[in-house]
Design a protein around this nucleic acid. Structure first.
Length: 849
RNA sequence: GCCCGCGUGGUGAAAUGGUAGACACAGGGGACUUAAAAUCCCCAGACCGGAAGGUCGUGCCGGUUCAAGUCCGGCCGCGGGCACCA
């Protein structure tokens, strides 16, 4: 009797797939296509269990769809630019390029033994010049299409490392590396005009019905559509050219509660005053200090500076309101100026209280209780408040209806107009970093900013750079910046900013359709393979990556790099949960926590010392907590199929799954059991003709049905539970029947998306023809899905009291007779007369007393 | 503060409005074995009972329904997203 030896069969079948070219994706007009994609990894150097789970899910879908007859594209690549490579270079020397490519080689080596059905011929890294050169070509096309521009923008600036920091890299107002207080600095940066698409990106979310609602909602909130009134205050005492100040408000219904106006420190009027008044300059400079992070803003005190300028209330020009420069007003949203209504806005209330400004309420109380509410601070959404002062004494609703009514009223009086605003801002892509895609632009003294000639692409990163001093190595490179202007031929200088790495990942899915082409995409390939039919990845990318990709696909369509039918690149999205593990901790003499790897712990104690460990509930695997299991050692110990089987079982794919040693053992045990059953069958040659096992055959077809549905609906855990159940039945079933013989081979087919090596082995040893990977998916026979007899539970007033077994199509009156004749029913009724019998055919019977 | 999701045995979890707890882990019992490992079989929501059977049970309170884990309303708890966005 042969044993289950994954270390022997897994390499064998991987070699067989390789040799046959089983997973090479081919354009095939005769077959429908299916494009499965998992979010590509950052080449950190080691794969982790999260990767295993992500790619296994994608692989299940890819293999299943292939068996269904689709021409499948299932590629893999590397999101290879980014700061970790530069940090590694700074910390331990070496070059980001070497670090990155050796990490890729290492991770590919770790990934291949998983037996994923990937078309490796399409592999690329975003740091390949062949890739980023095409990205540069698209950048130039996007410039021509008006989707790219430069502007001065406020950024987080680290004065020690001399670079822009992303908000995530600012911790408590300090640079994460330098620990220096981050400044808000205005720099000229490159931007993509994603805001041109705000409305469309929002509206099109409705069509993404195969995306999680959660993700669509997060994107909708991020785009942040609001409806409001924009109008101009007339000023008095303002400098020339500032006789009007435009403001935007979503609460025009509170306009009569205006008590002041406030402008951003970055507002043109503030900038003007700054030049003529040292006190203003000092205040504005003060505002610019401190980060732009949420934390920094959260704790910041509201501060204002009275400019001396006054504005007239649009409805009552006898009322003058002071104009403040206020630190909480953002230049980036609306018009960078607001009217303050302290009675109905918490922020304005705080400000008005601090500066002793009046707090007029716009609501007229209906009764004493209303009066108490409106006296000082009316809640904005109070349902109690029904009248608004000034709007013709009309009874006005609260909330959206009030806003709509107020906009209409204001427009009728010639005060402003209703406008729609979005929170989504243009995408700042400039990074003062080396390890990224160079922005292919040239600064010429006479021609200005000029795109590089496409013939000169790729604009390659220079290799001879150093990281021993802070700042951008491209800036200080002796020769790299020097070039000639493509327009006039004069000496010019290259742009030294590189692109945000999110640009790289915004179109890689399209590149996979023609990964080695000399243009970004190839029309026929893009037309055939796009869109991605199923995209799988972590929910942490719900907003940025997925929103940028949706924008980029539109930009590519506009510049002719994608068909216009591919502006929504991902037809279906699935966001999978994390792999977690318990944390094992002891304490050192000083009481500080000391963490231990799972393999150092057994039975709640440290294997080496016998010391008892504290078990902290399961959490995301992290190196610092040492609650990690290494996929490589799992594959070595148990085999890839066991790792794959286990990460799919137990928990629904969208939820976190806890890795446990006992769970992995159980998975391995089960696969061994399946192999034993198959081996027993394979040894039998004398299946008596005509022998059958109708029960087993029915169970098999129900299993086909359930597993198929399970895979289709991402219910992998439920599909696996059905496979367990069927295996239990199979193990107990009578030996030597034709049904059992068939069942083993179909079981192998049903398991093949999850445990492909085991499935191939069983297939070949039970006489299967060809590779199971290219064998059509089994079909359930509908006739076998319904039993001849059904067991109906009998409820009395909704409580289960008995059950009867009847032929599946027995007439309802006959069922009723049997129910009333049932002993247990009679006992439970105890002489009571049923008022009604509800028979749900094939389901249940309820006797109502 | 605003928006969203989720609460089921000791644990991970199943369950088109129709027998709650499938499947698995951990646990208990048994077979095989000189013994162990491996394997195989059985038990297992709680409470009462020898059993048959009964009562309770899907966070809490109420509602709709012949029937609610599932639908509706209100609470409580946990988790996630956004957040000086005017």
């Amino acid at each position: 009797m042969s044993q289950y030896k994954p270390s022997e069969i897994e390499p064998k079948w991987q070699a067989a797939w390789d040799k046959a070219g089983t997973f090479l994706a081919k354009r095939d007009a005769a077959r429908p296509k299916y494009y499965v994609l998992e979010m590509f990894p950052y080449p950190s150097g080691r794969i982790h269990m999260g990767h295993v789970r992500n790619y296994t899910m994608g692989d299940v879908v890819a293999r299943y769809k292939a068996a269904q007859g689709f021409s499948v594209l299932h590629p893999m690549g590397w999101d290879a630019f980014g700061m970790p490579a530069e940090n590694a270079a700074m910390e331990r020397g070496g070059h980001p390029k070497e670090w990155t490519y050796s990490n890729i080689a290492e991770m590919r080596k770790q990934m291949k033994p998983l037996g994923l059905s990937i078309d490796w011929s399409r592999e690329f890294a975003t740091c390949d010049p062949e890739y980023y050169g095409q990205q540069q070509a698209m950048f130039i096309d996007m410039m021509a299409a008006g989707l790219v521009y430069r502007k001065a923008a406020v950024v987080n600036w680290d004065p020690v490392d001399m670079t822009v920091l992303a908000n995530e890299q600012v911790i408590d107002g300090k640079g994460w590396r330098s620990n220096a207080a981050v400044e808000r600095r205005e720099l000229t940066q490159w931007f993509f005009k994603i805001s041109d698409y705000s409305g469309e990106l929002l509206a099109a979310l409705d069509g993404l019905t195969n995306w999680p609602d959660k993700v669509r909602l997060m994107q909708a909130n991020w785009i942040g559509k609001s409806r409001g009134l924009q109008f101009a205050f007339t000023t008095t005492g303002a400098p020339d050219g500032f006789d009007r100040i435009e403001v935007y408000t979503t609460r025009p219904d509170t306009l009569l509660g205006a008590s002041f106006a406030a402008i951003s420190p970055d507002h043109p009027l503030a900038k003007h005053l700054e030049r003529h008044d040292t006190k203003v300059a000092a205040f504005v400079a003060e505002c610019r200090r401190g980060g732009t992070t949420a934390e920094a803003l959260e704790t910041a005190e509201k501060r204002g500076f009275d400019t001396g300028v006054r504005v007239l209330h649009p409805f009552d020009t006898s009322v003058e309101l002071p104009v403040y420069i206020a630190n909480f007003v953002l230049m980036e949203y609306g018009t960078g100026a607001i009217f303050g209504c302290p009675a109905h806005d918490a922020r304005d209330f705080e400000f008005a209280t601090k500066y002793g400004l009046p707090i007029p309420s716009v609501f007229v109380a209906l009764d004493a209780e209303d009066a108490a509410l409106t006296e000082v601070f009316s809640p904005m959404k109070s349902e109690r408040v029904r009248y608004i002062r000034g709007f013709a004494g009309a009874e006005v609703q609260t909330g959206d209806e009030a806003v709509t009514a107020a906009i209409a009223f204001c427009e009728s009086k010639g005060v402003g107009r209703g406008v729609t605003n979005y929170r989504l801002r243009d995408w700042g892509i400039s990074r003062q970093r080396y390890w990224g895609c160079p922005i292919p632009v040239i600064h010429c003294a006479s021609c200005g900013v000029v795109p590089e000639d496409k013939a000169n692409l790729p604009v390659k990163l220079p290799d001879d750079v150093t990281f021993d001093i802070p700042g951008n190595p491209l800036d200080r490179h002796p020769t790299w910046r020097q070039c000639t202007c493509p327009k006039c031929g004069a000496d010019a200088r290259r742009e030294t900013d590189t692109m945000d790495t999110f640009v790289d990942s915004s179109w890689y899915y399209a590149r996979f359709t023609a990964p080695h082409a000399s243009t970004p995409t190839v029309a026929e390939d893009a037309a055939y393979w796009m869109n991605v039919d199923q995209y799988i990845g972590g929910v942490e990318h719900a907003i940025l990556h997925l929103l940028y990709s949706r924008f980029f696909a539109r930009a590519m369509a506009k510049t002719g790099h994608l068909p216009v039918t591919a502006i929504e690149p991902f037809n279906a999205l699935f966001t999978q949960g994390m792999v977690t593990h318990e944390i094992y901790m002891t304490r050192d003499d000083a009481g500080r926590p000391v963490y231990h790897f799972p393999e150092e712990v057994g039975n709640g104690t440290l294997t080496a010392t016998g010391e008892t460990v504290e078990v902290i509930p399961s959490a995301k695997m992290s190196k610092s907590k040492k609650n990690v299991v290494d996929p490589v050692s799992i594959v070595t110990t148990y085999g890839a199929d066991t790792a794959r089987w286990f990460v799919l079982s137990d928990s629904p794919p969208e939820r976190d799954v806890e890795w446990t040693a006992s769970g992995a053992e159980a998975a391995a045990r089960h696969l061994g059991r399946v192999m034993r059953i198959a081996t027993d069958i394979a040894g039998l040659t004398d299946n008596g003709p005509g022998q059958d096992d109708a029960g087993l055959r029915r169970a098999l077809h129900k299993t086909i049905q359930d597993v198929t549905m399970g895979i289709e609906s991402f219910g992998f855990n439920a599909a696996i539970a059905r496979l367990y159940g069927f295996t239990n039945l199979l193990a107990r079933s009578e030996a030597g029947t034709a049904a059992k013989q068939d069942a083993v081979r179909v079981l192998a087919q049903l398991m093949s998306p999850m445990t492909p090596h085991l499935a191939e082995e069983i297939w070949s040893m039970t006489g299967g023809v060809g590779l199971i990977a290219t064998t059509p998916w089994p079909k359930a026979d509908p006739a076998l899905l319904i039993d001849d007899n059904v067991t109906l539970p009998i409820q009395i007033n909704g409580k289960r009291r008995s059950e009867i077994t009847v032929p599946k199509d027995m007439a309802i009156p006959d069922v009723e007779k049997l129910v009333l004749a049932d002993d247990a029913v009679a006992r439970a009724l105890d002489g009571a007369v049923p008022r009604k019998l509800i028979v749900v055919p094939g389901r249940i019977v309820n006797v109502v007393v």
